[in-house]
């Protein structure tokens, strides 16, 4: 049967729309021109200049420190929460689910604002620690949802079998549950890591003096800095994203083939 060409035309335009700005940005990062208005020859000077920026390196350090610690804590909490939601059907778990689900649909600015008010009211000094607390708070929900989806196609009779065969709770958790949940936890962790590294709005609200993260740095470069150096930095970030997405997608398709 003949199909309409309209959806295909829309899809093609959407892809051009998605990639045109990114492509221009990457090309401009190799442009010798300061404002990138026209092509003035190939150059790596913006990358060289970028390498000399200590502040960016320092911001990157802060970002990675927060991302790794927030991912570890939110993975532990999120996995535990997903386990509770899946294992028990009670009024408590219905509340628990609402509590975990709601942060996903709250605009970032509200979360940033409400956390800022809390920290100010409680007299907590703003800085890396408050950013860490905020990141764990929004990452928990994502990790819990990803792990919960994984648990839903999980056969609990395996656990009973392990217990029948004499395994205690600890051995069951470590030898049966953990290996089966590992892929779910890993994708939850990857998501938490990405969200934490990318977060600007919430971090900006709860940041204090000396706790500049990479997105906060990028934001001030967008507002006040030189676009050429930012082109180079953005291109480097894009390369990291492409590699991460491609690798995780590759792992997923491999995992599906293995089934």
């Amino acid at each position: 049967m003949k199909r309409s060409r309209f959806p295909m035309a829309v899809t093609a335009s959407v892809l051009v729309f998605f990639y045109l700005p990114i492509a221009v940005l990457v090309v401009n990062s190799f442009n010798a021109s300061v404002y990138g208005g026209r092509w003035e020859g190939f150059s790596l000077r913006w990358y060289a200049k970028l390498a000399g920026q200590r502040e960016i390196l320092h911001a990157l350090e802060n970002t990675l420190l927060i991302a790794v610690s927030a991912t570890l804590v939110s993975c532990a909490l999120g996995t535990l929460a997903a386990f509770a939601l899946h294992r028990y059907r009670s009024a408590l778990q219905r509340w628990h689910f609402t509590l975990i689900y709601t942060p996903l649909v709250v605009p970032e600015i509200l979360m940033g604002m409400s956390l800022l008010l809390t920290f100010v009211a409680a007299g907590v000094r703003l800085g890396l620690f408050t950013i860490f607390l905020a990141h764990v708070t929004f990452c928990i929900s994502y990790v819990a949802m990803v792990v919960l989806a994984r648990l839903q196609d999980f056969d609990f009779s395996v656990i009973e079998a392990a217990q029948d065969l004499g395994a205690n709770a600890w051995v069951t958790a470590r030898r049966v549950l953990a290996p089966m949940l590992a892929p779910g936890i890993a994708s939850g962790a990857l998501l938490a890591l990405t969200l934490s590294i990318d977060d600007f709005v919430i971090s900006f609200f709860v940041a204090g003096p000396g706790s500049t993260t990479l997105p906060i740095r990028i934001y001030s470069m967008i507002k006040f800095g030189s676009p050429a150096m930012l082109n180079a930095l953005s291109t480097l970030l894009l390369v990291v994203t492409f590699t991460l997405v491609w690798t995780s997608q590759h792992l997923i398709t491999k995992g599906e083939q293995a089934k």
Binding site: V24, Y35, G37, D198, T241
Partner: peptide, 29 residues
């Protein structure tokens, strides 16, 4: 196709906004 939609989804939010600022700039493309 899915990969092509996921990549912008995972790309830094600020980078995507900046890319448009450059494009829409009076000297931009």
């Amino acid at each position: 196709l899915l990969l092509l939609v996921i990549i912008p989804f995972m790309t830094s939010f600020l980078v995507r906004i900046f890319a448009w600022k450059v494009l829409l700039h009076p000297e931009g493309l």
